[in-house]
Simulated scan of single mutants.
Amino acid sequence: MIHKWVLLNFFLTLLVIVLVGFSIKEFACYQFNQYAESEAQAKQFRQTIEAYLLYAGVVALVLTVVIHLFFAKKILQPLKSLFLSAKRGAENKGSIVVDSTSQDEISEISNEVNRMLKRLHHLQQQQDQMVGDLAHELRTPLTTLKGYLEGLEEGVFTEDDSMYRLLKQECGHMISVVEKLNELQKWESEQTELNPEKIEIKEWMLNEIKKIEVIGEAGIEMMTDVDQAVVEVDVQALRTIMNQLLDNAAKFDIGGFIQLKGKADDNQYIISISHDGQPIPEDEADRLFEPMYRLDQSRHRSTGGPGLGLAIVKQVVQKMNGQAGLQTHNNHHTFWITIPQ
């Protein structure tokens, strides 16, 4: 890049020297010719001034190239260092590129590249973790299926209803994981479009609660405090959010009740679902919305699902230009979302 820059400026400087030198020479010769005593004297003057202008032009050109090359290296050296550091940062998975304290453009570029590398590193970690967790979620039921099917084939197990229920349960778990992955991918896709319509949200939510079987099956008391309001929202998207949030609350509830609130606030409608569950560390609250993330790192099936429900909620809410979050204190948790009105 330095050589291209110097070469470009070399030709520009040469062009300026030639144009300016030619103009000065012609003007000087014109003025001298008016007072010259002979043509020979005028010719001698022209040759002399041409020689001086040539020497001066060469010296000026050389000095210009040297000075320009010196400052070009000074100016572009931080960019070169930034490039090399960015390359090392990418190879080292998110290390800081340039610890610059200046306030120039190079510093701004360095800070932006730092943020991009950290984000890239975080996404890479998420992807690696998700692949490992997904493999774990599918490996367990597949291993169980393989073991029991081999046992049936070899006559170790006998065919009965309990055996078929177990095999069906393992197949159902795998299907559930795949379906949730498909749903997450659908809401992440830019091709998925929303079809908003105006609804009276209080009536809609109260009717929707009655359809969620997991609440009744778990024997959980449902308390509601919902404001009446007309909102324009994609009903299917809102249904997905409600199902995932209530399903998540029911799975991890230890208090025997879930409180559903809906409040109209300025230009948005806030829906929150509160319940008592196991304590959630504050530094891990936001990570619950990451795909496949679970507090139980062993991923034992008895302590929850594959960890996709809240990730789906976040994607759907973002698709609706809203926000999702969690407020937690000890063992009391409140999951909330906002819907623009």
Rank of each mutant, 00 (worst) to 15 (best):
E150I: 13
Q44P: 15
L134W: 06
V113W: 06
W5A: 03
Q129K: 08
K319D: 09
E197A: 08
K186T: 10
I215D: 03
F252V: 04
Y164K: 07
M130D: 06
M1E: 01
W5N: 03
A86L: 09
E112G: 10
H332N: 13
L184T: 05
D99A: 09
D133E: 09
L12Q: 00
P306K: 01
S81C: 10
S85A: 11
E190L: 10
F157C: 07
P340Q: 04
Y52G: 07
N207R: 09
L166V: 03
D286V: 13
G304H: 02
A264T: 06
N114V: 14
F157V: 06
Q103V: 14
K180H: 10
I254Y: 08
T64D: 04
H3N: 08
L12K: 00
V226F: 07
V18Q: 01
H173R: 05
R239K: 13
H136M: 12
G57A: 03
K93F: 15
Q125R: 11
G304M: 04
C29F: 14
Y52I: 10
L61Y: 02
T334Q: 15
N248T: 06
S110Y: 05
V313N: 01
Q341L: 13
V58G: 00
Y55E: 01
L19E: 05
F45V: 05
G216R: 04
I220H: 03
Q31C: 15
Q297Y: 11
I280G: 09
T13G: 06
K73S: 06
V226M: 06
A60Q: 03
G216D: 11
A135E: 14
I337P: 08
E39G: 13
L79R: 01
M320S: 04
S298I: 08
P141R: 00
V231T: 02
M163S: 08
Y35I: 14
A311R: 00
L238Y: 08
E290R: 08
Y55Q: 02
L120K: 03
E179A: 10
T144H: 08
Q41A: 11
G307K: 00
A51Q: 08
T140C: 13
K80F: 10
C171P: 14
G57T: 01
I212P: 14
G255L: 06
G305K: 00
R119V: 13
L79S: 07
D253M: 06
M1F: 11
K210T: 10
H68L: 12
G262I: 03
P196R: 02
I75K: 02
N33S: 12
Q47W: 09
L238H: 04
I258K: 03
D283F: 13
M242S: 05
H121W: 15
V231F: 05
E217D: 14
N9Y: 05
L63W: 00
V233K: 01
R301P: 12
V98W: 04
I67G: 03
I220V: 04
E159Y: 08
F157I: 05
I49D: 05
L7Q: 02
V58R: 01
V65D: 01
D265T: 06
L14K: 00
